[in-house]
Amino acid sequence: MTSGPRLFSILRQGSILIASIHTALDDSQLERFREDLIDRIGRDRAKGVIIDVAALDVVDSFATRTLRGIAEMARLRGAQTVVVGIQPDVAFVIVQLGMDTGSLVTALDLEEGLTHLAATAGASIGPAR
């Protein structure tokens, strides 16, 4: 793996993992992100996952597919995923591309995402017991 600034970070807040992508990722970096995140869900016994994609200026077919894959894998591992921070231009392009994003749960921003997880997954942002 190349050194340099971190491309993404995965932070824990109570039983929720907050995964932020910091910069444009290429395909293998996205795959690494997916692996790291799924791994962390198991280790941290997370109930909810928030993926912040606000820094992505391009969400193409591969990125959409990877996000859907993460959500599905997380669901199988017992966690609910919310994607937050999709930029308006990016949303426009995803629709034009014709991507099926029906299975992805999304929220406008981190706050909305946390609210959603608290309501549906019973995930708390307090310290784990």
Partner: peptide
Amino acid sequence: VVAARSAAREVASGVGFPPTDLTAIAT
């Protein structure tokens, strides 16, 4: 792939495309 799309975005923004088109071109 990332290099190509950022190069395209940069050139396109010099041409005067609106932001949504820049994202479309890069994608």
